[in-house]
Nucleic acid binder design. Structure first.
Lengths: 146, 146
DNA sequence: GAATATTAGTTGTTTTTGTAACTAACAAGG
DNA sequence: CCTTGTTAGTTACAAAAACAACTAATATTC
């Protein structure tokens, strides 16, 4: 098991990004999964609704860059648990306007607090400017600024 | 859909990391998936063997922070395609020493070239020092330096 | 040196995801 | 209007991942 040459997997950006993403999701995931029984796409939907108020499945999908079937299933499950309400849109009766129920709001508030604390904790690993730079670079890589 | 308050999902590190990871994996994934029919864990195994020579499944799993069942199945498929050979270990007859076959070496070399080029291309989005800093921060988040 | 615990790796079963095909509503052009 | 095309969302089926239980070999301990 001797090293061959220059290129190192440990410096390959997609690999590093995956490892960092997985690792950094772990602790937070344990909370929304174990404590609230939510899947990742589910809390993403919750966060979008919690932050932006009412949205349609399509809008969430676009913003979260998530496929519509994933959103569809997440929405069903969240509706079953009464975390969100679905109302057929007036303008376009194909679409549904989604919104958190009071119970959903509660869960969102709690998760949000945990997320904020967790984010701050991760941030403590970096110096003042580094965190901002990191986020900027990640947004660029994710294509969020385009 | 009006914004509520300060916390922004688009700045939440685990979220950003996931988006960036997914996005940056996409193009490269298309290559190893469509062109070589490999799964992500499979090329990871290939890369580890290509870079470090001989390894056991366990060693790969530890280094790649990947569960042993995933490794096991990846190894089976790679062995079926004759990309790697499995030799029962002398010291410990539970373990197998894995190594790329010549044909596996070829695939590895090609994929490695593509990976390097792709990595360089991603890097072009950043200034000289930024790329190094980014990798350093990601390694820290991934717990690779511990 | 048997009895017990641990480890390397596999296999089976259940969830979750990805992909394609579908329904129902809307839009545009003639 | 009425055909043709597009869009929002769902459903069905196939692929992949997660988790648990297993086999076989090795360590440990009394």
């Amino acid at each position: 098991m001797a090293k061959n040459d220059a290129f190192d997997l440990q410096n390959f950006l997609p690999y590093l990004l995956n490892q960092a993403a997985e690792q950094s999701s772990l602790e937070f995931q344990r909370i929304y999964k174990d404590r609230y029984g939510l899947l990742r796409t589910e809390w993403r939907v919750m966060f979008h609704l919690g932050m932006y108020g009412e949205m349609t499945a399509k809008q969430i999908g676009e913003r979260a860059m998530t496929h519509k079937t994933k959103i569809s299933r997440a929405v069903s499950r969240l509706a079953q648990r009464r975390y969100l309400s679905r109302t057929r849109s007036e303008n376009d009766r194909r679409a549904e306007v989604l919104a958190l129920t009071p119970s959903g709001q509660n869960v969102y508030q709690e998760l949000r607090g945990i997320a904020e604390a967790y984010d701050a904790r991760l941030d403590r690993r970096f110096s003042r400017g580094e965190g901002a730079l990191l986020r900027m670079m990640l947004r660029r890589l994710a294509g969020l600024d385009d």
